[in-house]
């Protein structure tokens, strides 16, 4: 089978993101970049499906500027067989990402696509669902456990009410939640090996997809700050403070 995995280059999860003073975006110059954490989990799951005994080719795919090659090289070092970069400097919104992925999925004749449930930059949580729609195939979102048998995936999903189990026929789109797995660390020899793995660069135009954003971001602002920091001495003082605020 063929598994496609989405790899998004984002501001590293450890960076405290700051809004630019002029409100045109967030500070990204000189800021550490990395793979979207949910996407690392997606790739790890693909690797584990193969390691559990299913013959699989694993293709990492990314959309964005040329620098995305760094994240794709990391994906290759983790164990992906080859990589595809759809190179664009546009802001790629989820519907456009889904359209690009859909073209790749058709070209590659994929059986399974694994994406992170959301990217930690725009937090949209849409691309997997949209790809499944365009492809007219099942979606199993927010997966915390995946069992694979014949042409069916049984997926445990993290939902507000608890854990929901659904069965979906392949081909399908899976999106990962945090507890699906813990991604492996990349070893030095694998980084060397990854340099010789194929990485193909495409343009959105070759795929017939127009990438211009549909939502226009007119302003970015920092969130309103909570003013906290008041401490009390003991339990009776805590009770008094709660009464003062009218919550008790």
């Amino acid at each position: 089978m063929k598994i496609l995995v989405g790899i998004k280059r984002v501001i590293d999860f450890s960076v405290r993101v700051q809004v630019k003073k002029d409100g045109t975006g967030v500070v990204s110059d000189g800021v550490k970049m990395g793979i979207n954490p949910f996407d690392e989990i997606a790739l790890e799951e693909a690797l584990r499906i193969r390691e559990r005994g299913t013959q699989a080719e694993i293709v990492a795919m990314s959309i964005g500027p040329a620098d995305c090659q760094q994240q794709l090289r990391t994906a290759l070092a983790m164990g992906a067989d080859r990589a595809l970069l759809v190179q664009s400097t546009d802001t790629i919104q989820p519907l456009m990402a889904a359209r690009i992925f859909h073209e790749l999925v058709k070209r590659e004749n994929a059986d399974l696509v694994i994406l992170g449930k959301q990217a930690i930059d725009d937090d949209s949580n849409q691309t997997g669902q949209m790809l499944a729609a365009l492809w007219d195939r099942p979606q199993a979102t927010f997966a915390s456990k995946v069992e694979f048998k014949d042409k069916t995936l049984t997926v445990t999903r993290e939902v507000d009410a608890g854990l929901e189990v659904i069965a979906v026929d392949l081909p399908a789109v899976l999106t990962t939640d945090l507890r699906l797995n813990t991604p492996r660390f990349v070893k030095m020899p694998d980084i060397m090996k990854a340099r010789s793995k194929p990485l193909q660069v495409l343009k959105p135009e070759e795929l017939g997809v127009i990438t211009a954003p549909k939502l226009e971001a007119t302003n970015y602002a920092p969130p309103p700050q909570r003013v906290g920091g008041k401490k009390v001495e003991d339990v009776p003082a805590l009770i008094r403070a709660l009464k003062q605020r009218g919550v008790l």
């Binding site: 993101v17 930059d121 937090d123 954003p213 969130p223």
Partner: peptide, 29 residues
């Protein structure tokens, strides 16, 4: 193209939503 997590309605076609784990609030038209 969906708008996720509307926090505030500015007008019928303009909304505020959070990004970067709530570290930025973006206004989208």
């Amino acid at each position: 193209q969906q708008v996720s997590d509307v926090m505030k309605v500015i007008d019928a076609t303009t909304f505020e939503r959070p990004m970067y784990a709530g570290n930025a609030i973006v206004t989208v038209k």
